[in-house]
């Protein structure tokens, strides 16, 4: 069966001030796959993610979601698209003043006309799915880091999304807890045939979950392929990343001095 590109990024260029962050990114994301966007800190991967969920508009280029360009959409059109998109933020982004259950229920209360009784049952179903049954009345501050991530995931799943974006899902978690989150992401993909885009720099996670990997470096995609293909890649930056080699730092004394004393 022909693979369907549910997200198509075309020649995406963006600037922060004069600084070019994304330099013509082209990327297809296929329905039902887990695509990992890999790259070092500052490579532009979080910026790319922000564009994919419409939080930022590019300077140039297109992002087609199910064939429709979101870069030209108005707020109402974008809101409709976002209803079928779930997002797990890096810090889980739960509201601390609300209980876990209220956090999960929030998108449903805001975007649907469902009765409260229905929302309550849906919330419990989602919490059960992420292994947090019984934690409905806890406050986020009473949860561990891994549990917060799970709660964030339950909220991202509240509206039964077709596409799920995860920003650094295992950052700050110990390896065992991080593995638990990876297993959960795999379960969601298999169970709901969800398309999942994960932004990360955690290699262990990449090789566990990725169907395909796109590596971003200084605003450009320098590699696209499977986990096996990336390991065989001869690209020096890819190799450096996989082998966890530090940058060769040979300071230019003149330049360094100039940067310290320039007026």
């Amino acid at each position: 069966m022909e693979k369907e590109a549910i997200i198509q990024v075309r020649d995406l260029v963006t600037y922060y001030g004069n600084r070019q962050i994304l330099k013509g990114v082209n990327l297809d994301i296929y329905r039902g796959e887990i695509l990992v966007i890999l790259g070092r800190s500052g490579c532009g991967k979080s910026t790319l993610l922000r564009h994919l969920i419409g939080l930022m508009k590019p300077s140039r280029g297109q992002i087609l979601i199910k064939g429709r360009d979101i870069t030209t959409m108005n707020e109402d059109e974008m809101r409709e698209i976002l209803k079928k998109i779930g997002m797990l933020f890096q810090g889980a982004a739960l509201f601390n003043s609300m209980t876990v259950g209220e956090n999960v229920a929030l998108p449903l209360r805001e975007h649907t006309q469902l009765e409260d009784s229905t929302i309550q049952i849906m919330t419990r179903i989602k919490l059960d799915l992420v292994g947090l049954a019984g934690f409905e009345n806890f406050k986020p501050s009473q949860l561990s880091g891994g549990m917060k991530k799970r709660a964030g995931l339950a909220r991202a799943l509240a509206m039964d999304p077709e596409i799920l974006f995860c920003d650094e899902p295992s950052a700050g978690l110990d390896p065992v807890v991080a593995m638990g989150i990876d297993q959960l992401i795999l379960k969601l993909k298999n169970a709901f045939k969800m398309t999942i885009v994960v932004v990360t720099h955690e290699l262990a996670s990449v090789f566990t979950i990725a169907d395909r990997i796109a590596m971003l470096h200084e605003g450009e995609i320098i590699f696209q392929g499977t986990a096996e293909e990336i390991q065989n890649s001869k690209h020096p930056i890819v190799q450096q990343f996989l082998n966890r080699e530090a940058d060769d730092v040979e300071p230019d004394r003149e330049k360094y001095l100039h940067s310290l004393v320039k007026s």
């Binding site: 449903l108 649907t112 469902l114 009784s117 229905t118 929302i119 049952i121 849906m122 179903i125 989602k126 039964d160």
Partner: peptide, 11 residues
Amino acid sequence: MDSSGVATLVE
């Protein structure tokens, strides 16, 4: 059927 449908039947 999504989870709202399932929840409705649970209700």
